[in-house]
Nucleic acid binder design. Sequence first.
DNA 1: CCAATGACTAATC
DNA 2: CGATTAGCCATTG
Length: 123
Amino acid sequence: MLQRCIVGVKMATDFQRRVWEALRRIPRGRVTTYGEIARYLGTGAVRAVGTAVGKNPDAPAVPCHRVVRGDGTIGQYSGGEGVPTKIALLHAEGVRVAKGRVVAFEERLWHYPSQSTTSPSGS
DNA sequence: CCAATGACTAATC
DNA sequence: CGATTAGCCATTG
């Protein structure tokens, strides 16, 4: 049973799994940027993040459509009708998009939780 | 291992 | 604001 997991199966890299997991952390009605994900992963591989998101096999089960570019523009999307579908999904979650750009982008922008400064066992 | 690619970003024209 | 160049890192052939 487990044998088939180690042969003849396209396996994603750990990097991609971390990216997809980061996508699941995005709350509904919010958006994030590739740069934020890269920072969350602790790397500057914005390009690699975008590629990993595009290879997301569980789309749109994973909110990959909540990821936009750093300047608030929609960016790209692979699936359905492409970018139009990405915008449609965002609208379905309450995120307004105009001229291929997220309305009130910085207000809708989601930031990943940072380590609590009130941590009792802080270093 | 090397070369090419990509759902990006920033700077310049 | 649109087009171009260069830098970036992981994936893929």
